[in-house]
Design a protein around this nucleic acid. Structure first.
Lengths: 142, 142
DNA sequence: CTAGAAACATTCAAGCTTGAAATGTACTGG
DNA sequence: CCAGTACATTTCAAGCTTGAATGTTTCTAG
């Protein structure tokens, strides 16, 4: 065994593990509720983030993934008739994503399912606020 | 647009987005430091979690992934000569994973790199403790 | 002891994700 | 205006991840 690690660094590493663990739990939760609707976890995540018309890049950012991945997922949603790629009103490089009526309806059902047994239900409203503060604080870089 | 969602549910959804965002940031951070060592992010994560001899399942749990994925990643690490699969001393179903001397050395270098510019550096030690409490509280289910 | 149930690990197919390269469009300083 | 740079998107290869199916081994109730 190599030299003993700094306790500080170890604590940080474990904390990263916890963050990843919770993120994984959230994804599992999404997947569970997506499958009965005929969606994969990735598709459901995209649908969930479609709070209104947006570009590919905006969607990718909301999904915390690369734009090329958003292309992949939106392709699927488009084939399912849930989303449309329109010309962007002011930027000819970009596409404007819009939910179809079917997509909007399905999104509504999805959101209902997602609200049930949230992975964060173990926290009180105040704890959730604290968590949000900390995460926002930790994330604001880059 | 469909009926307006409950504000409570919306807040929870956004919080999930933050958790995922931070997890993504952590993975990116690992990837950045893994590549110069000739490792992928997944391989580096596995190496990082190898705090001592353990079974496939234990490693998978630490990596927050399915055992079948651990098999995949350990295969790679084994081919790189960084890890060994031994017979488990008491359970013939299980394997005991052990780092090779090279694996142990590389892990040391990886941990050093990972400690630099941690994605959690934006938080004070106390904030990190609070975050840890909240996450542990949120995760203890299942 | 023994049958059934559970657990460990692996394999494979299907789907996800990243990063680099390519294309087309917008912006910026001369 | 024009060249150069930056940006939005897509394509593709390589690698990651899950879930179901399989083979072993262990555990447990009877």
């Amino acid at each position: 065994m190599t030299p003993s690690p700094e306790p500080q660094a170890t604590a940080e590493r474990e904390l990263c593990g916890l963050v990843n663990g919770l993120a994984q739990q959230i994804t599992d939760h999404v997947r569970e509720r997506a499958v009965p609707l005929g969606l994969t976890a990735a598709q459901a995540t995209a649908l969930r983030e479609m709070t209104g018309p947006m570009t590919m890049r905006e969607l990718a950012e909301r999904m915390s993934c690369e734009p090329s991945n958003a292309t992949f997922v939106v392709d699927k949603l488009e084939k399912l008739g849930l989303i449309e790629r329109r010309a962007h009103p002011t930027d000819r490089r970009a596409r404007q994503l819009v939910l179809t009526p079917e997509g909007d309806t399905l999104r509504g059902r999805l959101l209902e399912l997602l609200a049930q047994d949230s992975p964060l239900a173990g926290l009180t409203a105040e704890q959730q606020r604290t968590l949000q503060d900390l995460l926002e604080h930790a994330i604001i870089r880059r």
